[in-house]
Write a protein that binds this DNA or RNA. Structure first.
Lengths: 74, 74
DNA sequence: CATGAATAATAATTCAAG
DNA sequence: CTTGAATTATTATTCATG
């Protein structure tokens, strides 16, 4: 049971490298990274990390960390 | 039919002065401000204004404009 | 306390229509 | 192009369980 903090670090890594548009997508990517969790947990991680879903101009929103989305928009 | 931009200005005003935690709450406040719209429209306005819902530490999230929460984070 | 399963709540989108 | 009503999708929370 890899600690929560390890998983949350993975969450940050994932959203930095991919355009994640839903918690379920994030859940799947976490699975590939070795963290099998449910959407409920992803939701809690997002809250604890204070990630936000920014509505894209075109329509697709994606999760990001407030601090970063100004500079990096992958 | 007060223009969309007038309504969206009201949206910004509302979220600046109240802690809005859901689109439905925002819809109600807009109603009081003289803009009767449905949740669908509120959702679209939020997207167009690129407002985000920031997860509060305690659990309650609220809508805000990215630009502003950097400076004002209580 | 951390989590999952199920559920409730909220938000996005579709489908007309003006 | 803008909107509302209804629907779908997504997210938050509740209710156990370890």
């Amino acid at each position: 049971m890899s600690s929560k903090s390890a998983r949350q670090a993975a969450v940050l890594d994932v959203i930095r490298t991919r355009r994640v548009t839903s918690q379920d997508q994030l859940r799947q990517l976490l699975g590939k990274a070795g963290f099998a969790v449910t959407q409920a947990t992803v939701s809690r991680d997002i809250r604890e990390l204070r990630l936000v879903k920014v509505p894209g101009a075109e329509g697709v929103g994606h999760y990001t960390l407030p601090e970063e989305w100004e500079s990096t928009t992958p």
